[in-house]
Amino acid sequence: MTLVTDAPAEVGAVQAYTATLIIRRFDPDVDAEPYWQDFDVEVYSTDRVLDALHKIKWEQDGSLTFRRSCAHGICGSDAMRINGKNRLACKTLIKDLDISKPIYVEAIKGLPLEKDLIVDMEPFFESYRSINPFLMATSKPEKGKERVQSVVARERFDDTTKCILCAACTSSCPVFWTDGQYFGPAAIVNAHRFIFDDRDEGAQVRLDILNDKEGVWRCRTTFNCSEACPRGIQVTQAIAEVKQAILRGKP
């Protein structure tokens, strides 16, 4: 590889094109129903959908409302439905989408729509809280020491520690769309993270909670959640492991 010092002119050589975004707008103060509105934006091939949304908000229509915080795929604020798939706007490059067609952007489904791309996340966090997403341990670690865990034991639940609570999985689940009582994939993923942690002693409590009518048995293994997860968590597999743990009666 040769070192190239990019002159400012060459930066401009990054491909630029006009993309059309069709955004599902809704202002509860004015609109009775959501409607689709299209915007043409000049974007670069290095831009993400979030950059296009920023351009619209900053240069065309300041009333466009959406959540974003870190803008780098960690905070989990900007999950939205992009071309019918749940994605993080800050991790979706526009060049990876089909630019010859308009890009459809709408709020995630299954949660109450508040404004434009913002939904009420409370039901989602409610079910997250109800699975006790914290370490439950009665034993005290040795004085001045931490709880020791082997590499193998840590590996057991490594995948589910990656969750950023963006709700992309839960709001892609057809069972959650029709049955708001269902815990949803994200809550089960976070239960999995503690159920299979050998430092935790609350596995039985969580398994009991998820053995409920609205618990893991609602899952139909549609794999929408695994496909939607921006962190690549094997969500459906995690749910299946929790099901097996319930049948076994222990993790």
């Binding site: 009991d208 053995n211 009518k213 609602r218």
Partner: peptide, 9 residues
């Protein structure tokens, strides 16, 4: 926790 048989399971 509902008592009795867990029909869903």
């Amino acid at each position: 926790r509902r008592r009795g048989i867990n029909w869903e399971k």
